[in-house]
Amino acid sequence: MNDLKIEATKYIPGVSFDSKKNVFDVRGDSYPENTAELYSPVVSWLEKYVEKLENGKDITINMELEYFNSSSSQVLMDIFDILEDEARNGTIVVINWIYDEENEIALEHGECFQEDVEAMTFNLVPKQL
């Protein structure tokens, strides 16, 4: 299975994955023209990844998204659904939603996602200055 590595651009966030620690880092803005086309390989990759995940391994995702459009928000929900299922199966999944305290919209989105998840741990993490 190939490692997941996406370079950030103006329209998509950078994604890096540390396969040893099972830590993902997602950082940037997300407002591409064709969100579904762009992110479907990422979603497929994640589905395969959780399928092959060894028992007893944890997943940590550090997310720092300052702006994303509504279709990106749909993709995020799809991703959280996959992870939520995995968490229900006993994997410890931690999402750290990193936001700047001055950015109320980023916090608002984080709170919104936090409400929707149950099995996984969703932390709202103010950014350390």
Binding site: D29, E66, Y67, D100, E102, N103, E104, I105, A106
Partner: peptide, 19 residues
């Protein structure tokens, strides 16, 4: 619509915001 409150700008390039 969210185009207004989400617009990036200001010193830190954050969204306009509801407040």
């Amino acid at each position: 619509t969210d185009g207004f409150v989400d617009q990036l700008g200001g010193k830190k390039r954050f969204s306009f915001g509801r407040r």
